[in-house]
């Protein structure tokens, strides 16, 4: 077992706690989708990505694009924890003149590699970054995190086809497959299953993992990095709202502000009280 695993579990819950505090203080935001992707975000930022808080524009850095941009509080929390921004920034989510916009803004927030928020667009941009890396002779990796619901967007499949055609080997697509979208169950609104075989049919390297198992996330990241000649997808099975029992699989938390009482109970559940 990787020695970082216990740490990653602790960090992920700490990021979850920060998300709920941020949304509570800021008065707006999307806790459910941020909690479901917290383990992937924690593992990537704290064990996988080559980034440097002192040099957010470092050309050789690995890139992370949060295509499901509404989950950004969890990335903001990770960036603060890494030292890209001071901790007090977290109290300003979605507030006027804040560095922390409602959806990621690469010009306002150090450490954000790409502006995102309108769904479906991250993969095309990630493909562009990967192609730029190859053209420029830089070996950085590009990670794109998408929600399962956003796989309904047409541009995603344009990018899926083009990435395979161009053999974009340093590109990894993480699908936070929590089964929910804003309006309800993905399966009921416009079902996508089987996502993995669909991507495999497009000639992607595909892995399916438990998106809350840090060791599985690390192993999948390493396996993806070893695939040099085609893009890689990791279908991560997750629970929306993971880590806080009364938020898990309750889609009213897609966008909802916790009361003081709810925040307190959530922090207890996360071991962060």
């Amino acid at each position: 077992m990787n020695e970082n695993i216990p740490d990653l579990a602790r960090i992920a819950n700490s990021l979850r706690a920060d998300v709920l505090r941020m949304v509570h203080v800021g008065g707006d935001g999307h806790p459910g989708p941020a909690l479901s992707v917290a383990d992937i975000v924690a593992t990537l930022y704290f064990s996988v990505l080559r980034v440097d808080p002192e040099r957010p524009d470092w050309p050789q850095r690995d890139r992370l694009i949060l295509s499901k941009g509404h989950a950004c509080p969890v990335v903001y929390a990770a960036l603060v924890r890494l030292g890209f921004m001071p901790p007090e920034t977290l109290g300003t989510l979605r507030c006027l003149h804040s560095m922390l916009q409602g959806h990621p803004d690469m010009l306002k927030t150090p450490g954000i590699d790409m502006t995102t928020g309108s769904l479906g667009n991250g993969l095309s941009i990630g493909l562009g970054m990967a192609l730029a890396g190859r053209y420029s002779g830089r070996d950085y990796a590009v990670h794109v995190i998408a929600g399962d619901g956003e796989m309904q967007e047409g541009i995603i499949w344009e990018a899926v086809m083009a990435a395979a055609h161009h053999g974009a080997g340093r590109l990894t697509l993480w699908i936070d497959n929590n089964g929910w979208q804003s309006g309800g169950r993905v399966a009921q609104i416009a079902g996508l299953e089987p996502i993995g075989p669909k991507l495999a049919a497009f000639d992607w390297h595909v892995q399916e993992i438990d998106g809350h198992d840090h060791e599985a996330i690390l192993d999948a990241a390493q396996a993806a990095a070893a695939i040099a000649d085609r893009p890689s997808a990791i279908v991560a099975h997750t629970v929306k709202g993971k880590g806080v029992p009364f938020i898990e699989n309750d889609n009213s938390w897609h966008k909802r502000v916790p009361t003081s009482d709810e925040l307190e109970r959530a922090l207890v559940a996360l071991g962060e009280a």
Binding site: I125, L127, G128, M129, L131, E158, A162, H166
Partner: peptide, 25 residues
């Protein structure tokens, strides 16, 4: 090596261009 043709997919073309530009091209 400087031509990136994504096929008949203009949204993807513009997205790819954004990615290329963000990396200095």
């Amino acid at each position: 090596e400087r031509v990136f043709d994504v096929g008949i997919a203009e949204q993807n073309a513009v997205g790819v261009a954004a990615g290329l530009a963000s990396c200095g091209l």
